[in-house]
Design a protein around this nucleic acid. Structure first.
Lengths: 213, 213
DNA sequence: GATCATATCACCAATTCTGGTGAGATATTG
DNA sequence: CAATATCTCACCAGAATTGGTGATATGATC
C-alpha cells in the first residue's frame, strides 16, 4: 500500500483554496494538509506538516511565492515545490526556477491535469505547462548560444592565448605553458587586442567570457 | 476549418515509423508527410515538404538527430522540432535543446500523449516529459546559482570596485567613476586580491564572473 | 612566383599594476 | 570606552602590461 502524497497549498484566492481542498481531500492517494492565504508562516507550517509537495501561488500579499520558495529551499533543499500561477510571465518563471521550484503549471489546466502533475512532481519529474516549457527552453538556448568562432577573426593560436588569459594566467605562464617566448605571447595578445578592440587583460577577459569565446 | 498539422518523422526504428504513420495518417487534424530511416537527406525533405512539426529520433545511423536539428534550424530558424527518444540522457537533452529542439518527449509515453504533444508544439508550447523537464530545470538552476554574496567577505565597496574591474575598467577610470583617489582604488583592489586569493586583474575578473559575484 | 595570413621572435619606452607599509576618519559592537 | 571593521588616502619600488617598430619562416592561395 502506497503512502498518500501529503500536500499543502499557499494561495490568496479563496476559490482556488476551496476547490483544491475538495479535489485533493477526496482523491485517493493524497493527504490534504491545508491551504493558507499567505506565506507569512510558511516555515512553521513546513516544520509542522513536512509535506511531500508544496503548491505555491506567486502573487500573494505579504511574502510573495518566490521568496517563500527560497526560504523553504534554504531549510529543506530537497522539498518539492510546484508553482501555480494564472499567467505565464517570463521573469517570474525565471525567478521561480532559480529559487528552486520544481514544477510550474498554469491554473487554467484541468483538475485531472493537476492531479497528474502533482503525482509526477512527487515521483521526481517536473511538470510544466508547454507554454512555460517553451520559455524555459528559450532561456537555456539564449544562455548557451554557441560562440561565433569565426567572428573577430581570431586565429587558433590567438584563441588559445586568450583562453589562458581568461584563466588568469600571466604572459610568463602562458609562454611557459605554450612553450613560446614571452615576446611571442606578447605579440599574440597585441593582435587579440586589436581584433577585439580592447586594451587590457581585464577587458579582454570579460569580453571573451561574455561572448563565450 | 483548421489546416491539418503537417508532420515528418526521422527514426531508424521501423516499428516506430510504422506505428506513428498509422497514428497520424488516420488521426483527424494531421497530415502525415512520411517517415525516414535516417537524416542524410533531411534538408531536401524539408525543402520539399515544409512540415509544421518535425519528429526527430536522436540515435540514427549517418547524421545523428542533433546534427540534423542544427542543420534544419540554420536554414529554418522557426521550424518546430520535437525530439523523440527512448531514454532521458542528460547530455543529449542538453545538446538537443542548444541545437534548437522545441520539445523532448520519451517514446514510452502513450500515443494519445504524443498526439497532444504535437498539437501543443505546433501551438507554440514545448511539451516535455516531466523527467526531462526536471533535468532542464536543474541545468538552469545550476547555471544561475545565486552569488554567495557573503562568501569571501567582500565589502560593498570592494564588490563595487570588482564590478568595475569585470567591466574592463582601469584603476584610473574606476577612481574617476567612483570619485576616489587612485590609491584608494588601489587599496580596495589589494584587499580584494587577498580575499579572493588572486593577484592580477585577469584572475580576479575570471574568478568573479565564474562565481557570479 | 608573388602575395597573404599566420606564427614565431626581439627591442624599447611609457604606462599600469602589484605589494608593501602606514595612517586618519567613521561607524558598529561588545 | 575599547576593539573592530570599513573607507579613505599616500608613497615607494619592483614587476607586468601595453603599444610601437621591426624581422624571419612557413604554408596556402591566386
Amino acid at each position: 500500500m502506497k503512502e498518500p502524497i501529503k500536500i499543502v497549498l499557499f494561495d490568496d484566492n479563496a476559490r482556488i483554496r476551496d476547490s483544491l481542498a475538495l479535489l485533493f481531500s477526496t482523491h485517493e492517494g493524497f493527504e490534504w494538509q491545508g491551504a493558507y492565504r499567505d506565506a507569512t508562516e510558511v516555515m512553521d507550517i513546513m516544520d509542522i506538516y513536512n509535506p511531500d509537495v508544496v503548491l505555491m501561488d506567486i502573487d500573494m500579499p505579504g511574502i510573495n511565492g518566490i521568496e517563500a520558495v527560497r526560504a523553504i529551499k534554504k531549510r529543506y533543499p530537497e522539498q518539492v515545490i510546484m508553482m501555480l500561477t494564472t499567467f505565464d510571465d517570463n521573469d517570474r518563471i525565471f525567478d521561480a526556477i532559480c529559487a528552486g521550484a520544481m514544477g510550474y503549471i498554469i491554473k487554467s489546466k484541468s483538475l485531472a491535469y493537476l492531479i497528474n502533475a502533482v503525482k509526477e512532481a512527487h515521483e521526481g519529474g517536473s511538470p510544466m505547462s508547454p507554454s512555460v516549457a517553451r520559455k524555459v527552453l528559450q532561456l537555456l538556448q539564449q544562455k548557451n548560444a554557441p560562440a561565433d568562432k569565426e567572428a573577430f577573426h581570431l586565429t587558433d593560436r590567438e584563441r588559445e592565448v586568450l583562453n589562458h588569459l581568461v584563466n588568469g594566467k600571466a604572459y610568463k605562464m602562458i609562454a611557459a605553458d605554450m612553450k613560446l617566448s614571452y615576446d611571442t605571447v606578447h605579440s599574440h595578445i597585441k593582435n587579440i587586442y586589436k581584433k577585439l578592440h580592447v586594451n587590457s587583460v581585464g577587458e579582454a577577459v570579460s569580453f571573451a567570457i561574455r561572448q563565450k569565446l
